[in-house]
Simulated scan of single mutants.
Amino acid sequence: MTELISVVGGAVVDSLADPRTLLVARRTAPPQFAGMWEFPGGKVDPGEAPDQALHRELLEELGVEVRLGPELPAPAPAGWPLNGQAAMRVWFAELTAGTPQPLEDHDQLRWVALTDPEDVLGLPWIPADLPIVEALLAAVSAQSSPN
């Protein structure tokens, strides 16, 4: 059995303590995903820790530095299945330096309101990211609900 490719993604929010908006990125490639939205991030390099990879990827793709928050729980230890060959782990992240710009792999960035799930779910997401988006919305809703 081939080992899964490890991918990391950032759920970049306006505030780790009280997330209200989420930064999403529109892909330019490959052709089947061009124009679709995703969490910014990418592959973990050999010997690289997943959290280090996420910091590197967000700097390369968006030109930003972030503070990582909790990881969004996935259905499997390897992360969220993207396809038969790859799985993605996703962390909440908050900007600490830089202004997000679509530097690599994306042509547009957008802040979407987490308080309006229809707005978030109305975007054409890469199909593998949609269950992650739904889980993120549920996690944020549970965090903001009074106990």
Rank of each mutant, 00 (worst) to 15 (best):
G35F: 08
V7I: 15
A53D: 07
N83P: 13
A128T: 15
R26G: 11
R89G: 13
A135N: 12
P19A: 04
L82R: 09
S141Y: 02
R89I: 15
D45I: 08
P30H: 02
V24C: 10
L121Q: 03
D51E: 12
P127S: 00
E38R: 03
E3R: 09
D105G: 13
L59D: 11
W111T: 05
R67M: 11
L59V: 05
R89M: 08
T96H: 05
L136M: 04
R27K: 13
H55K: 04
L123K: 06
A139P: 12
S144Q: 11
A17I: 14
A49N: 02
E71F: 01
Q143C: 07
R56E: 07
F39T: 10
A17W: 11
V90S: 11
A97R: 06
D18E: 15
A93T: 10
P75G: 07
D14E: 11
E94Y: 03
L114F: 09
G84W: 06
T28P: 09
P31E: 14
P131V: 09
V13L: 09
V8F: 02
R56Q: 03
A97D: 14
A138Q: 15
L58D: 13
Q85H: 15
E3S: 14
R110Y: 10
L114V: 10
A17T: 13
G84Y: 03
P40I: 04
F33S: 08
L72A: 01
P73V: 12
V133T: 09
P77M: 03
H106M: 04
R89L: 12
L68G: 03
A34Q: 08
L16P: 15
T21V: 14
T99G: 08
V140N: 02
E48H: 01
E38K: 03
L121H: 00
G10W: 07
L54V: 09
A93C: 08
F33Y: 12
P30L: 01
P46T: 01
N147S: 13
S6R: 07
P124Y: 01
T96L: 09
N147R: 09
P81C: 00
G98Y: 04
P30V: 09
L114I: 13
A142S: 04
G122D: 13
A87S: 05
G35I: 12
T115Y: 00
A34I: 15
L59E: 12
E94G: 10
P46W: 00
G9C: 05
G98R: 08
D51V: 11
M36P: 09
E65S: 06
G35H: 06
V66Q: 03
A74D: 14
A138W: 13
D119Y: 02
P70C: 03
P117D: 00
Q143R: 13
A135F: 11
L82C: 14
G69H: 04
A97F: 07
E134K: 05
A139V: 13
A76I: 10
W80P: 03
T2Q: 12
L16Q: 11
P131C: 06
L4V: 08
Q108W: 11
V44K: 02
G98P: 15
L59Q: 06
Q52K: 02
R26P: 14
M88F: 07
E61H: 00
V140Q: 04
W125G: 05
L136A: 02
G41N: 01
A78Y: 02
N147M: 08
W125Q: 09
